[in-house]
Write a protein that binds this DNA or RNA. Structure first.
Length: 434
DNA sequence: TCTGGGGTCCTAGGACCC
DNA sequence: TCTGGGGTCCTAGGACCC
């Protein structure tokens, strides 16, 4: 099933039908760090949050994985398992830059590229009159070209996205796993249900209670029984377990939401602290909205309490908004609905959704509009119109200062105060703090 | 010293309108 | 006066992914 040899024997087996690749970058963040810091190569590198600040591992290099460290593991645990690891908080702009360069390589091969995350993409390389190359030939070339950029990838090849995705996971790093047309059922049948993307711990548990552990068992259970328990999601998982996934590559991807959240080393209990944290998240959200030229109509606030339970509240704004000074007061009102002083707060998050594409380039209310209004209407709008340009200039100025000097360059007064109260100790193991 | 941050999609109930 | 539905929007929460 797995074929990592690079001789040309695959030409003996022509590819019949659809060919989908899933390209997955190996330990991507850690690999970029090792590329950028040659002295870190061959050593355990962990990208993640501080062990003493409730951090978790984002990515561990393969050297660190040998110690049992993996993604989403609490950093404190990772540090115990691998005390000599080199730690970094990560450099996301750099990862984005590398990712873009790699996605360009993929789009060089075909326009049918669906990027699913910063380190993963589906490609449709079905042999056609235009593209006569064998999918495996394309996959091998992609691996070579990605390695020239200093990182590696694993690729799964199959007749559907489901198959390609699972295949890419079978052999890492630098793996190439091929599931030939017609062998899909043999490939899927013995796998645990968790191998299917979309089946997490909750669904796995429910399936187990139904006596279903493997994809083969899921596939031969009558569809209606799965649908009765899982609804729409059940339909999809049953089809996919039967190898029937015929979903196509989706090139278009528009942003649906923008949010920022943060957890605190120690729970917050005071209104001043919580409001400062909300304001700080709101500033980040506002800035990102403006950078992406998005205005949202649904504002949401999320709180995780000391006991890790979560509550959220959202409100619909009367007009699309990207200015935190307008929505921070609303957030302060919202937080009073779900929190009162003294309750321990572990996390706060602020988000905006409800972007209408048609309003992306919407013009501001202009003076011209005043002429078509009644006197009463125009009086009530005048102050807003005269203030708007000033506010816009201020936003552009503060945004550019933050771009140059970082988010901490400008802060609300209350933010500064709360920050000075909670300065944590710096970890010895954090080699690269910036 | 247990358990992040940024997303997507789905569900279920209530309000409201026809 | 009582009663029914469909459609749509909004809200809160939860599962899942990387």
């Amino acid at each position: 099933m797995s074929d990592t040899s690079s001789n040309n024997s695959f030409h003996a087996i022509p590819w019949v039908g659809k060919a989908i690749l899933l390209v997955d970058l190996d330990a991507f963040f850690a690999s970029v760090e090792q590329k950028d810091h040659p002295e870190w190569r061959g050593k355990p590198v962990i990208v993640g949050g501080d062990p003493d600040k409730r951090g978790v591992v984002s990515t561990a290099s393969y050297e660190a994985r040998k110690y049992g460290v993996h993604s989403a593991m609490p950093s404190s645990q990772a540090q115990r398992l691998c005390p000599d690891a080199i730690w970094t908080h990560g450099h996301f702009d750099r990862y984005r830059e590398m990712s873009n360069a790699i996605m360009d390589i993929l789009r060089d091969e075909t326009p049918y590229v669906q990027q699913v995350s910063i380190d993963e993409a589906f490609m449709d390389v079905t042999p056609t009159k235009v593209n006569t190359e064998h999918p495996i030939q394309i996959a091998l070339r992609i691996q070579k070209r990605v390695e020239e950029l200093g990182v590696t990838c694993s690729i799964g090849v199959g007749t559907s996205k489901t198959i390609a995705k699972i295949a890419s996971d079978m052999d890492k790093p630098r793996g190439l796993t091929i599931v030939y047309p017609g062998t899909e059922q043999d490939f899927l049948t013995p796998l645990p249900v968790r191998a299917l993307s979309g089946i997490g711990p909750a669904v796995e548990t429910k399936l187990k209670q139904m006596g279903i552990v493997t994809l083969g068992e899921l596939a031969k259970t009558p569809r209606f029984e799965i649908e009765r328990v899982f609804g729409k999601a059940g339909t999809v998982m049953h089809i996919r377990a039967n190898g029937g996934d015929d979903s196509g590559i989706e090139i278009e991807d528009s942003i649906k939401s923008v949010s920022n959240e943060t957890s605190f080393a120690q729970d917050l209990t005071e209104t001043k602290q919580v409001e400062a944290a909300i304001a700080s998240m709101a500033v980040k959200v506002g800035r990102r909205l403006r950078r992406k030229q998005l205005k949202g109509t649904t504002l949401s606030l999320r709180i995780r309490y000391g006991d890790r339970t979560v509550r959220s509240i959202q409100t619909t704004l009367n007009k699309p908004c990207d200015d935190e000074l307008e929505f921070i007061p609303k957030l302060y009102k919202m937080v009073r609905e779900i929190w009162h002083e003294g309750m321990p707060v572990r996390l706060v998050g602020v988000g905006m959704t409800g972007f209408d594409e048609s309003e992306k380039h919407e013009e501001q209310l202009s003076l011209f509009d005043l002429e078509t209004m009644t006197d009463e209407e125009s009086e009530s709008f005048k102050p807003i119109i005269s203030e708007a340009p000033k506010r816009k200039q201020l936003l552009q100025a503060t945004d550019s200062i933050r771009d140059k000097f970082g988010d901490d360059a400008l802060q609300f007064g209350s933010e500064v105060r709360s920050r000075t109260n909670t300065t944590g100790s710096s970890s010895k193991n954090v080699a690269d703090y910036k």
